[in-house]
Design a protein around this nucleic acid. Structure first.
Lengths: 200, 200, 200, 200
DNA sequence: GCATAAACGAGACGGTACGTCCCGTCTTTGA
DNA sequence: TCAAAGACGGGACGTACCGTCTCGTTTATGC
């Protein structure tokens, strides 16, 4: 007999309400002042229902944030094959997404959760930046065509650098970058690739 | 009579012991489980003595971390004037410094403090990365000589990118980069400057 | 159509297992730390099966205790007609019964249940001491013969006094009384009756 | 240096407020529904202040009840030397005291605490009935004069019997006894002493 | 023999209270 | 006047049970 079907089944609405409450509190009061009791109260749920499914505040926040961020699909323009143009387009789109204050709050919440639970900080950031990184690499590779350069390595460095820079901006509450700053960053990154490509 | 000098003077040893206790606890148990009571107990000090001088846990941690990091003077090799060589030398020296686990714990503690108090996250990161940024810019500028390029802007982007990348590595518990990865990063950054310099 | 016989009939083994589990827990951990969940787990029964048949912990304990105590039939010696001898014989037999630690635990459990539910404290004690009281009165009356004294009133007082004294001993964890103490109690009680008989 | 005087001294008003709150709750809702949180809230005190000074609910209740009962000084009439008269006078005075519903609630609370913590049930009842027992023995002995009988043993049995009977009445919510019942009890108890005295 | 109906085990649910830790404040003694 | 000690009112922790509520399953009755 299947063991998984014994007893009252899990209430999926309660599950969803908890994650939504976490995101709401993250935006409203931040990670430190988010408490399990407030989450439960806001979700209209018993405390034990939270503890039954998540072992800690940081794990709860991690799942809520990652689930919340994944729901948001970034608009991605067509790749043109011109590296500078494409990098700038991706960067502008990504910055626009980040401009949403509640999204920034979620990212900051995840950073706090990672600081809290050192043991899975790595995993959290991987899950956070991984999809964007893959997407960016695919986007640029498609635009560039094939055979030009050691794309995998180079584009990996580019993607990491851009991810790090954007995370840094969020964590430090930097205002949106000026066009000039965007220019500089694109030039830096694209120039690097160009140089390496020329040298190879 | 001077008002400020009336009564028992502040105990500088208690002050130092508190900051040291904070750093020890950050390394041992992390930001979340660091409490004022533990700090006071570890420092052999009354709780009130902590509250008298610092308004919050995050402020206390911020001061302790910044004071702790500043004490560590990074060894900085002579600039050669070859940009790639100099950037790599600085990067290697910086990575070596970061490799110290307790120093990484301090940086993570500061990140948690910043996540805790959004209002001065900006200031904290500025104080954390500012000196390194200035130092890097001066180091590279000195090596490059003058008049070549729009150094301030270009080097600023380089410095920010490197700072972001190194913070990202610490927060995500990345292992020390391989020589290959260092190569790639140097190429990216230096290539960018070269490109822009050539274009100007 | 008979409404009461439709559906699966009550499981008498579960019923008995629950009561037995209650008695076991009363002996082992006492009334306060006895919980419905522990009872259900120990009886190998779902919680709902307990709640289906008993409205409260105190009602459950009351039934379990009374059922448990009734099962124990006290040995009762032949009445001789000599009041002092008969009272002493009954008292010794009763004290022997009470000496069983698990029986004492049951009585204490009932006292706790009564303290818990004031509204039927009276009923609980009546059901607890009632049978013993009747038995004692009948025993003494039979021994005494008839027509001597206002037996009902006198013997009622005697019975109440003895019941109260024995309950008091159990609740206060008094050690078994010495022969001397038994003597004194018998003398007190019998002397009272004799006096009244003489005076009438 | 005296260790006991370091730090902020205990707040005696909070202490008193807690005990008073316990007594109020015992009267209002009974032992089982009295919770530490309600006590603290009613006393206007933090929960920790309760836990700092009392290890458990039963210990708290025990102290509150005993302190509360001791405060009530029973009126005690002059002893006449006539044993029956004196016993009846004491019994009537004691019954009158017990008639106060809040006092009865306190006694029931103590019984519940004793059932809860078997290990000091003995002590609790001793402290509860001890003073009354001593007082009764002294009262009767003074009235009887000296040299008549083995007073200590006899009066001890009388006192125990009366204490047990009165506790039993409280626990079982018996209504106030009729004059007839009082008569019977006095006769029983006094007759016993008389008999023994005559026999000696 | 097949629908209806109740009892059963399991266990998730919204809650209450537990006893503990820590918050930031206050009140004492001692230097 | 500062500092240690430590008690204070309060908030949140993570756990144990409360009494209720689905589930799938079992065991009876009666059409």
């Amino acid at each position: 007999m299947a063991r998984g079907t014994v007893g009252r089944p899990r209430d999926t609405r309660a599950h969803a309400a908890i994650l939504e409450a976490v995101r709401e509190l993250l935006t409203d009061v931040g990670y430190e002042r988010l408490t399990i009791e407030r989450v439960a109260a806001l979700a209209g749920v018993g405390k034990q229902t939270v503890y039954r499914w998540w072992p800690s505040k940081s794990a709860l926040v991690a799942e809520a944030v990652l689930a919340g961020l994944i729901r948001v699909d970034a608009y991605m323009p067509e790749a043109t094959g011109n590296l500078a143009t494409d990098v700038r387009a991706w960067l502008v789109a990504a910055l626009e997404t980040q401009a949403d204050p509640s999204r920034a709050a979620l990212v900051r919440g995840l950073a706090a959760a990672a600081a809290d639970r050192v043991e899975d900080a790595d995993r959290l950031y991987t899950e956070l930046t991984g999809p964007a990184r893959q997407e960016l690499i695919a986007y640029l590779a498609h635009g560039l065509g094939s055979g030009q350069i050691r794309q995998d390595a180079d584009l990996g460095v580019v993607a990491d650098t851009l991810a790090a820079t954007m995370l840094y901006r969020v964590l430090t509450h930097r205002p949106a970058p000026t066009p000039r700053e965007i220019d500089d960053l694109v030039t830096l990154v694209v120039g690097g690739i160009g140089t390496r490509a020329a040298a190879t």
